[in-house]
Design a protein around this nucleic acid. Structure first.
Lengths: 229, 229
DNA sequence: CGGTATCCGCAAAGATACTG
DNA sequence: CAGTATCTTTGCGGATACCG
């Protein structure tokens, strides 16, 4: 944002001079999961005009937050990826997203939805105490859109694509995922209705539920198992 | 922001639907230090148009982030103040500000400056480890603009106005403050040049320097004292 | 596929005058 | 002091054409 700067001796205002324009933080959100091509970004930012995306990318590149990288010959193309400075905005994005996750009502049913967007609330709403002693990777496959959570050293980090050696693989469709995050569907009901395919270590599923769905779900799971026996 | 929503099932996007418009986060920054009147806000947001400020305040009030409160009769006026939801955005503002503080070059000399803006970088750039066992309040008086830092339980919190029982009172002018935060002037040099008036407990000054100026300054201070003896 | 260039209509931003 | 009203300018959204 060279034009229309706040021109204030304030670190917040100066940060917003760079990332405060419309769409800019969402472009960074898209790149937080990994490098993306121009058209991938267009798809992840429904509503943005092509020329605006081009302008934002040029601006972010000149500001040193992203980098344009040519891919090796076979894949005649290029991708945009975060630099260290760009990635360093992750905590700020998390705090903003957490605020919304904790206080905003579920969105109307007609808003745009991309499975990959869900991995962020997953990561920063996770129960870190429950994740404390875990070292696992949980992979999610949602209608061809794959992502995973790396859980280690008490952190829960979102990543794009498939994992190397996932402890757990959950396969579900976008509708199911969306319903769970709209609080229209309980995770356990989704499992019992066969809407979530499970591969991997049984304990990993328990851990995943404990970390992502909270202690109530863990307790509920335990009581249901007790009933079944 | 009722109009021009991102319309995405994403907590970050939905947060930005509310606070992502130009000036909105800076209005919240102004209110983070305490309640303010309309004209106080205008002064703290140089460049904003009056009608825009009115629009932002109305929007934030309807979104439940701020509240308009009538003052008791003697002071025939009203103030705007944060609600709990509004105050909850503090960590997000801090993360954005921290990013800028750590990576952006010093601003050009002609940008607008308000002493109160400095208290935010002071608080989130503070050395929390050094503040760990402290229970003090450091008050700053800068050209009639007063603020203080409350240091307790390992936290360093910015506050507006004068403190109740400050451990330390530093009096300086805006130019000195600005030079220090532009890295044009070392804090210790400002002291030795008599540009900072000091009242209060001597240990509090040491603590303040250790927490705000870092271990190097503390070491330097110790070595100078050793030379003097 | 990965953009750039251009045009249009509208809504937001900015500047200033005015009022209770 | 605390805004509202009015006007101009700029950015944004959307479409489409073009090009390596």
């Amino acid at each position: 944002m060279a034009t229309r700067s706040y021109d204030q001796f304030c670190t917040l205002a100066r940060t917003l001079d760079i990332v405060g324009e419309r769409w800019t933080l969402l472009v960074l959100r898209e790149l937080m999961l990994g490098p993306k091509r121009f058209t991938d970004l267009l798809d992840g930012l429904p509503g943005i005009a092509r020329n605006l995306l081009a302008a934002r990318l040029r601006h972010l590149e000149r500001a040193g937050l992203i980098r344009r990288r040519e891919l090796p010959p076979p894949a005649a193309s290029h991708v945009y990826e975060l630099t260290g400075d760009g990635r360093a905005l992750g905590p700020a994005l998390s705090e903003l997203g957490r605020w919304g996750a904790e206080r905003l009502p579920p969105p109307p049913p007609d808003v745009a939805f991309r499975p990959g967007w869900i991995v962020f609330p997953m990561s920063y709403m996770a129960d870190r105490a429950a994740a404390r002693d875990l070292d696992e990777t949980w992979e999610f496959r949602v209608d061809g859109d794959d992502f995973h959570l790396r859980v280690a050293e008490g952190r829960v980090e979102p990543r794009a694509g498939r994992a190397d050696e996932p402890s757990l693989i959950l396969t579900l469709d976008a509708t199911t995922l969306r319903q769970i995050f709209s609080a229209d569907l309980l995770p356990l009901d989704a499992f019992s209705q066969g809407r979530i395919g499970v591969e991997g270590e049984p304990e990993a599923l328990e851990h995943c539920l404990a970390v992502l769905a909270g202690p109530e779900v863990t307790a509920l799971l335990a009581s249901r198992q007790a009933e079944a026996e």
